[in-house]
Structures are given as C-alpha cells and as structure tokens.
Design a protein around this nucleic acid. Structure first.
Lengths: 222, 222
DNA sequence: TAGATTGTTAATCGATTAACAATC
DNA sequence: TAGATTGTTAATCGATTAACAATC
C-alpha cells in the first residue's frame, strides 16, 4: 500500500505468471539444500535438481532482484529467505477447508501445510453428521458459520473439496467474504472475478492427457 | 507402427502439448452436454463452459481433423467419440497403483477412474502389514511382485503414491517394466527418459504460487 | 439464398534460449 | 589477476489471437 513502488511485485504485470509458478519449486529445492547443510548453490546445480535450465532460473530470479554473486552463485539461506518473502510464505496464511468428505478429511489430517507457510484455521461442512467432529486439529463447523468465521479469521485462502454441483456457489460465497486464492478439488472449472486466483487439482485430467501419447505409440493394452 | 501415416498423432511433433492437455477438458464438457441431451454445440458455447476462447478451441481441434459443420457447430456425440478415440480413452487402460498409504487408499477407493477410461488392475505396497488387505476392488500385492505383474497385465500407466525418498526408484522400476505414463503424488520431480510422461500432483506448490499475488496486494493476515 | 460458424492463414504476443558483458 | 557465474540483452521459438475465406 506504500506509495513508493519498490517491490517488483508492486508491478506484477511485468513478471510472467510462469516465472511465479516456478518460485515455489526453487523454495523447495533450497529448503532441501539447507537441510543438507549446503551453503552455496549455482543456477546450474539448482536446475539439475528441478529439471529447469540454468538461464531460465537466472531469468526468473532477475524479475525480483539480484540475489547472486558473479563467479560464485547464490547463498542458499539468503535466496531461500528472499523467495519466501516474495511468495509471502513467511506470513503464516490462515486457510479454511470447505467440505469435509474423504478429500477434505485427508487434507485436514496431513501435516504438510504448516511447514509450507500455511495454517489451517477452520473447516466447514453442510452435513449435520459431520459438523462437530474433530478432524486433525480442528472441529468441523456448520456451513452456516462460514461467512462470519471467514471474515473474523481474515481467511484469504480456501481449499474447496465439495461436490461438483456445489463448487461454484461455495466459491462465490468465499470470494464474497474476502477469500482471494482457492484450491479446488472438484472436476469443474469455477468462474471467478479478476483478482481472484483458482488452482484446480484434477488428477484425472492429468492422466487423460498422457494417454494421448500412449495411444499414438501403439502401446494399447489389447 | 503402420507405414502410411494418416493419424495426426503419428506426427505428434506438430501438435502442441498444450493443445493435447486441453482435449480432456473438451471431453468432459461434451460428456456433460451429452448427459444433458444437448445434440449440437459451437465453439463459443464450449468455450464459455471451460473459459477458453472459441478460436483457441477451433485451433486445437484442427490439429486432429475437421469435426464441425460450418454454420452449425459440432455434433456433441460425434466430437466426443472422436476425441475419446484420439486420447485413447476407449482403450480401457490398465493402471497400477504403487504405495497404499493414505493417498493410495483414497485413489483405490474412489470410483472415478473407470468412467474416465481407466481400469485399476493392481496395487502394490512394501509394508507386510498392508499387503493382503482388500482396498476398494483390489487386494494389495507385495512390492516384490511388481515387475512380474506389471509386465503380465501390460500396465502402461501407474499412479505412484510412495514416500518422496522412494519415488525415483519406484518410477525407474516401473519404466523398466514398460510403464510409459505416471501420476506422481510425492513432492519431488522425478527424472524419466524421453518418451515417458510424468504428471506431478502437487497441491502445496499450487497453493504457494498463489500467495505471491496475495502478498503483493497487501492482503496479509496481520 | 442469407446467416452462421467452421477451419485456416497471418499477425501478435509472450516465454525460452543463446550469448555475452559485468563483476565477484 | 584468472576463472567462474551472474544478470541482461537480443534472437528464437512456440502459442494465442485476429481476421476472414470457405462452406454448411
């Protein structure tokens, strides 16, 4: 909100989305290097870990600043901290889960989110049977509380795991309460207004696009 | 393998990967239209369902043939059948699941795969506790049987849901047995030789790339 | 025939790669 | 200083969009 636009993300139009989408991969690789007590890494090595070319990595990083030292490479710790800052992973985002069926339950039970910079703070379900159950660290709340609680907890990120036919409506409601980033597990492509981001997790689609190549190579099972 | 290259996918170099990756979405939308008794659809309408521009759709389809009628649009049933054929979804691919932890269990229990053109035919796990259990329609086999069974069943597609540190090794083994398409659920980027396809399902990465935009818009939770 | 929509060609746009000067 | 690797500019590549002729 400051007037003097210094951060490269105050001008996000300049940064290609693909570059942003690769940043979390860099963070992950750097975390691993840090855990392995590696102190310095160059773009070549980082590229090998992730199967990305080294100029690609240097170019991606250059959109956000100058983090390396010529002739030497990047300080693992320093680059990691910088990228986490750029991605906002140091914020501890509050995340809500909507839909506590099988999928939602799995998400709530796994402990991956906290280390990744997220905090699961609320779970909602429409089924009275499910409401009140303890799943992972949370007690499932009735869907009626959604608007109130999402605003109260300043939730900006939601994971939606409700049936396809309810997805659009649930997402509209969440967006109305201030949610700006959504992970959707239903096999539909929800429509959201500009400024709101949706990522669809759709393993079947991923699988189906690969069969195309198998089919063309005569690898059919018959 | 035929000498007379008629099918557009005998020359897959010409077809952009992005176009192929959109085909399953068209299949899904067309299936829905068919279920809704819609007989004809045009590129505009299809585009609205999927948030893809109409010229994009026409271009994608044009890589594979001429399926529409000018002035009228596409026959839902005909286009659906054609695209299913191109993607090889009419084959009934045999699919193996490796790793029957939480994630693998969820995959085996859900019934989405068969309608999508896949048949889960084997499940493997290294843990003697898990081996022999009935999960969904299948009995979990010991990992030792993997090579034999994958060859025997002519499995070309595998879903890998093993811990990160075992993923590369399991995938190498599967590829050695003839698997050519893999869905990987571990947060690592496995390396495979040319001609083998991997799709990584990585919700945390998807989530982390969205926070970048939230952070830059001053929507932090503090 | 008139109207509509496809299929395709050409123009634009954006992302990747190559190459190298800057510099640690 | 010599060697190495970054950061950046320019060239290439590929994908999307615009526009329209073909044709149902």
């Amino acid at each position: 909100m400051a007037d003097d636009a210094k951060s490269p993300l105050d001008r996000p139009g300049q940064v290609p989305e693909v570059a942003v989408s690769r940043l979390p991969q860099y963070v992950r690789a750097l975390s691993q290097l840090l855990a392995d007590r590696v102190e310095v890494v160059n773009s070549q090595q980082l590229g090998e870990m992730l199967q990305i070319t080294s100029p690609q990595i240097r170019k991606d990083l250059s959109y956000f600043g100058r983090f390396g030292k010529q002739g030497r490479g990047y300080s693992v710790r320093h680059l990691l901290v910088e990228l986490q800052g750029i991605l906002g992973l140091d914020h501890g985002w509050n995340v809500a889960v909507v839909g506590v069926g099988r999928r939602g339950r799995a998400i709530l039970s796994y402990p991956w989110f906290t280390p990744a910079g997220f905090r699961l703070v609320a779970a909602f379900d429409g089924d009275p049977e499910t409401v009140g159950q303890q799943v992972g660290e949370l007690t499932v709340r009735p869907i009626e509380e959604l608007d109130w609680a999402v605003r109260e907890l300043q939730v900006r990120i939601a994971i939606v795991a409700v049936p396809s036919n309810q997805t659009q409506q649930v997402i509209d409601r969440l967006v109305g309460c201030g949610v700006r980033a959504l992970l959707n597990y239903a096999p539909v492509m929800p429509l959201v207004r500009k400024g709101v981001r949706v990522q669809n997790i759709d393993p079947v689609l991923a699988l189906q696009s690969m069969t195309c190549y198998l089919a063309s190579e005569g690898l059919g099972p018959d």
